[in-house]
Design a protein around this nucleic acid. Sequence first.
DNA 1: GGTTGTCAGCTTGTCTGAGGAGTTGATACG
DNA 2: CGTATCAACTCCTCAGACAAGCTGACAACC
Lengths: 225, 225
Amino acid sequence: MSAMIRRHPLAEQAAEELLRRIGSGEWALGAKLPGETTLAAQLGVGRSTIREAVRELAGRRVLESRQGAGVFVIALQAAEDWDKVLRKADITDVLEGRLAIETEAARLAATRRTPADLKNFRYTLADRQRAAVKAPDDWYIEADLAFHRAVVTAAHNAVLTELFDTFVPRIRRAMIDMLKLDEEHRHRHDQAAHEAIADAIRAKDPDLAAARSRDHLSAVRSSIR
Amino acid sequence: MSAMIRRHPLAEQAAEELLRRIGSGEWALGAKLPGETTLAAQLGVGRSTIREAVRELAGRRVLESRQGAGVFVIALQAAEDWDKVLRKADITDVLEGRLAIETEAARLAATRRTPADLKNFRYTLADRQRAAVKAPDDWYIEADLAFHRAVVTAAHNAVLTELFDTFVPRIRRAMIDMLKLDEEHRHRHDQAAHEAIADAIRAKDPDLAAARSRDHLSAVRSSIR
DNA sequence: GGTTGTCAGCTTGTCTGAGGAGTTGATACG
DNA sequence: CGTATCAACTCCTCAGACAAGCTGACAACC
């Protein structure tokens, strides 16, 4: 009954404490932490608890332990958890980030697209057309994302592709929410805009492809708020 | 002598094995893993080793253990380690990603910049000017990055700012390498191009700001390869 | 002097056994 | 049918023991 609050395990608390001390500058980058037995005594927990705390921070690429040598700081803070960043950010900020990625991708795609990429456009656009008419929301969302991903893939840039994939979960959630609030949105969300992007890339016109992508995604962003 | 290869601890090997099984679909999203004793027997290691493996994957937000209930899959694969992705990617791919981010940021900055942002431009541009003439490489690099960050900050978009900061370490390394190879590069790396970006943002001309940013960063990318 | 070999003492790595604490589902009861 | 009880299961924490690996000091050697 009292368990409204979730008590974290000791190992997690210990990990947080270590992270706090690292952030406070107690141990610099590359510094060696005291031994496990010493740390255990300092924090008043068992050695295996310290080991689990260190292992957790090792998983987060903050610490690294080398047998026989010790435990060392390899990053002053945990790497940004992008899933968390995107979840907490304003959806308009997220969509502007997406616009940056996809617009540049469309521009590059117009110069690098292969025949396989064009075939991919045909498939995903046809799927999207069908889904827009009669499929359930999930299918429609996946079909829409599949086309956008096809555009990014055609840019043949691993970084942009990875960035897009990082954004996808957050975008998917936003689309789900929007379709719930606005049942008619799907019909206004024009297939023609997507065809236009594909056409510009086919025609090898970078500026036009970028402009089409920008127009479409700007419209999406505006329709949200 | 044989230790050219680094043998990983059992706990890490166990974590990798669990990750592999999750990826293979053996345990779906949200599924409960077998108990510690069962897993220990399956993998042929002790219980504490399994616990450390689970703790590591918990740190990587793949597993979650709840006392009394069990260990559950909360993500089908580890979140991308962006530092690693950027380190392994082609530098041209990285610079194209940077171009996407900064060009869109410049465009947004032209509509959202505040007086404080403009003051920031003045400071960082003056610093950069000084550093271009007589400072050591590190200073010059930091001064250059400071101006670029000022532009991104002026976009007032948390996602773009975070993206830029993620790219910075990789960009910094690339600049260091380039300056080593090409001592004269600094003098060709024009201050005027940076002033032009700032001017367009000051003038509240989004398209011009984006174009200036694109031109500059395209030149940077071309000078690398 | 400079190099090499040895080793003691530190570190982390792993296993085991014990008991504590929380969750869950079956079962008995009203 | 709804509720309370409880036994079995789970993870959590500790302690102790020994293995494996690293490091620096020191001696032996060239």
